[in-house]
């Protein structure tokens, strides 16, 4: 159940997508997508069923980066911002599992973002570069796993993803795994994804949250911190692509970050200023707020 990433499960069990439901929609009882899902659960869910949920990709692609500068200007880190959102999703999932009597649960994670240059259209909007969106996906995954580990109320929960097989240590996508800029090809990946999810569900009695393992790359990335990098954003337009994320370790070395950014069709060499959130003054905060307004 969930967003369009349920497509890779078509033909396997009951698959239903009410539309581009976001993680935030899933936490809202007023939301029509959530109400659609609840209607399906009410009509079909039997005690003991397993639920595989696909939500979050739309948030990471289009919502989080757009909203985050507003929160950052108020002192919220990207890690905390995403954790706040994921914790609400986690609570909503727990409520769903208990309400409908699901026996086991798997959150299927988003695939890596497409490599820059992929054309998007209004139906698949995005903000941020490939790396930016991959960092958001990683932080979302990490936050969900932290929720599972710290709140093991429902022990038959799992999280799985191919994301860490699709990126390198710099969080770049290693190739274009997605066909339309967003979705995995169900013909290529459907069987392997179903096998992964089925294993989690069938072995649920042994599925202890502490045994979650997403591989060496996840282990390597899980302790990294990220900060936005400021520059003069006056030229940034609403639909621009830009990358303002770096590893905090790189920032501390005060090295120039020569990543290219694209503003509309023009490509500009990045000349970023590294700023730690604890050293921000009011002028810089107002600049971020202005950025937020420009993005929106």
């Amino acid at each position: 159940m969930g967003d369009s990433h349920t497509w890779v499960f078509r033909g396997r069990g009951v698959v239903y997508s009410p539309g581009p439901i976001t993680a935030r929609n899933f936490t809202s009882e007023n939301n029509s997508y959530k109400q659609d899902l609840d209607s399906v659960f009410n009509a079909m869910a039997k005690s003991g069923d397993s639920l595989v949920l696909c939500v979050g990709e739309v948030d990471m692609r289009a919502h989080y980066w757009r909203d985050f500068p507003v929160f950052y200007a108020r002192g919220v880190s990207i890690e905390q911002f995403i954790m706040n959102n994921v914790a609400k999703l986690y609570d909503a999932i727990q409520l769903t599992l208990n309400t409908y009597g699901f026996d086991s649960f798997v959150l299927w994670g988003a695939p890596a973002a497409s490599i820059e240059g992929k054309l998007y259209n209004k139906d698949l909007p995005f903000v941020g570069s490939t790396t930016t969106r991959n960092i958001l996906i990683h932080l979302f995954n990490l936050s969900f796993i932290k929720c599972m580990l710290s709140n093991p109320k429902f022990h038959k929960m799992g999280f799985s993803t191919l994301f860490y097989n699709m990126i390198d240590a710099q969080v770049n996508s290693t190739t274009n795994f997605v066909t339309d800029g967003v979705h995995l090809d169900e013909k290529l990946y459907g069987n392997v994804i179903w096998e992964i999810v089925s294993q989690i569900i069938s072995n649920r009695s042994e599925m202890v949250n502490e045994k979650i393992a997403l591989g060496a790359l996840f282990d390597q990335l899980k302790d990294h911190s990220y900060r936005p990098v400021l520059k003069n954003f006056t030229a940034v337009e609403r639909d621009s692509l830009f990358d303002t994320w770096i590893l905090l370790d790189d920032a501390s070395m005060n090295l120039p970050y020569d990543r290219k950014i694209s503003i509309s069709t023009a490509e500009i060499k990045g000349d970023f200023i590294f700023v730690r959130s604890d050293s921000m003054n009011q002028i810089e905060k107002s600049e971020i707020k202005q950025l937020a307004l420009e993005i929106q």
Binding site: T22, N25, S28, N30, S32, A62, H63, D67, A292
Partner: peptide, 19 residues
């Protein structure tokens, strides 16, 4: 009037409203 009920009011426009 509120998010997810009023026309065009979603999580994206909510931030626009607050700003």
């Amino acid at each position: 009037s509120k998010i997810d009920v009023t026309e065009n009011w979603d999580s994206l426009t909510n931030m626009d409203i607050l700003l």
